[in-house]
Design a protein around this nucleic acid. Structure first.
Lengths: 325, 325
DNA sequence: GCTGTCATGTCAAACGTTTGACACATGATG
DNA sequence: CATCATGTGTCAAACGTTTGACATGACAGC
């Protein structure tokens, strides 16, 4: 790989001059500029971002930690984060935590050693303290880790409310929400409160069923959904904290012979691709992922540039109606 | 961020000594070692991989280019590549090409500037020549770019054959394969030949329908699938080059009132999560993604370490039967 | 008392880049 | 003619790390 010295030698100038041409600073005559450019082309020179990073003390790389991109929600989140980062001139170092605390701890060290300029936490298996002691700019997805760690999320209460109101409007009178078990500082807990609140306001019976174990591990879903149907034989409106759960519920309904949407109605969460792929299409709460990702990246960039953060606020969600309601 | 100099000062030794402790080379007394370790702990020191990379001329980072992690297949591929890279001590810089040739060209430059040690091409929108002139170690997914660029893939002919044989075995007599349009040097083209060959061997009628435009853009799928059903009213066995296509076909069947699997049978490709989420579950051809990813990473590592590559060969696929056949 | 060899540690160059400080023309201004 | 601005370019330090070359002291063997 050619270096700036090779370019300088070939163009018959000093390395400083080459650097000046690349960075457009100082006075350079057109003739010199052309010579330098030609030498760069001929050598296929690409400046080393590594050397630049060392000098400038910033890498223009963000770390993104997600449980796994194999989950459709996180695959889509990753897509949008990458796009947002790219737009602001940052690259992404992708890390999978796989729901494993010690893996996540390792990843934080790895990202620190690689001097990433900021970290987006799409996974948080560790205690708040462990994140707190990191001094890198961070943005935490769906969880309030500490007052000084910015977060980004969507309006989970509103999501829960929209789901309940929609089910009620569509004629349901016995609602069940199937939810993961959330740490208390996770915003996603708001989905349940919004859901219950809206049901109560309408005088409709509503219950919450919590999944055990990993909220995102689908291997338990088939049994869970079958159990939900069996234990709530009169339920006619189901709400899930992810589209994936709803997908498994749809299967369970088919197996139990409950017709959707006639006998029972389903609402998912995320508006991930899954909701489009299912038959019937899944009514779901749409999170504005692109906006959320842009917000997260913006939040890191602001921290880096010393621009004060705007007070964080959840982004609005909407209900997308499809065939399951 | 503390540097090695801070650690040395705090421990009362030279930076060389600190470096020796970290890298375990030369003679260091236990007492010195302990002093240094303590200083590192107290300062929360993490060595800069950037400085190391500059010196060692390798970054221990691989670039991964995929169209988008929002597509379930590529989300899963990314997951496995990350895991395989991590296992071998490499990090991943994730890039989305979004099916855009000029974006991909930019990404190659970006990865070169960041001095990645190798590139995994899960997307190839450019002409072979453009990849060829890169001298970085590469591994190309599902496409033979040039004799000197290693590739990794699964046995596509076998996949096509298994699908046809299975459909025939399940009683189908009029087969249709819905396929993306592939560049001639893409291995995925083999799926069609395997499919046709197996059908011919069994004396069963089989046709290929090619999608127009982007093989992975799902917005056209609903109309496409409706058209396929309308134009082939006597078809009773469908095979798709992705699970996602099959998902849309399943919807089209429901809308057309064709019962699955009684009236018509469907086979997808990839065994991505989609095949599990659908109802009925999708029979599909399973690609061994984890093995493929490990192979790709191994291939890059070998190039870096100068270990000769084993002759590339497609990995075996299997058929996973579910409810659509 | 030499020489040799451990055991421990220091020095300084190198990696590829940027950039402040400076050098040296040329020509205009006062 | 002294001063100044402008245009062009050079030099060397700095970023954080590794590592070959060297220094020092202790002790053994001859």
């Amino acid at each position: 790989m050619a270096t700036i010295h090779d370019v300088a030698a070939r163009a018959g100038v000093s390395v400083t001059t080459v650097s000046r041409v690349m960075n457009d600073r100082g006075y350079i005559s057109e003739a010199t500029r052309a010579k330098v450019r030609r030498a760069m082309d001929e050598l296929g020179y690409e400046p080393s971002e590594i050397a630049r990073s060392l000098l400038r003390k910033q890498s223009h790389v963000f770390g993104l930690i997600v449980p796994t991109t194999a989950h459709p929600f996180f695959g889509e989140l990753t897509h949008h984060v990458e796009a947002a980062a790219c737009e602001r001139g940052y690259k992404l170092m992708l890390c999978h935590s796989g729901f494993d605390a010690s893996k996540e701890r390792e990843l934080l060290g790895l990202l620190a050693r690689n001097r990433v300029d900021g970290i987006i936490l799409g996974s948080h298996e560790l205690d708040v303290e462990e994140y707190r002691k990191l001094k890198a700019p961070m943005a935490s997805f769906d969880r309030r880790l500490s007052p000084d760690i910015p977060w980004f999320t969507s309006d989970n209460e509103q999501g829960g409310r929209l789901a309940a109101e929609h089910l009620i409007e569509r004629g349901c009178s016995r609602l069940i929400m199937v939810s993961g078990r959330y740490k208390p500082d996770m915003f996603t807990a708001g989905r349940a409160s919004g859901f219950l609140q809206a049901a109560r306001a309408a005088g409709v019976q509503a219950d919450i069923v919590e999944t055990v174990g990993d909220a995102l591990d689908e291997t338990g879903y088939p049994k869970l959904m079958a159990r939900v149907l069996k234990q709530h034989p009169r339920a006619d409106g189901l709400f899930f904290t992810s589209d994936l759960m709803a997908a498994y519920a749809l299967r369970a309904c088919a197996e139990a012979g409950w017709r959707v949407p006639e006998r029972i109605k389903l609402v998912g969460y995320d508006d991930s691709g899954v909701s489009r792929w299912l038959q019937p299409g899944l009514t779901t709460i749409r999170q504005p992922l692109a906006d959320m990702a842009a917000l997260a990246v913006d939040c890191l960039v602001r921290q880096l540039e010393g621009i004060p953060l705007e007070p964080a606020r959840p982004l609005p969600v909407t209900l997308v109606q499809r065939g399951t309601t």
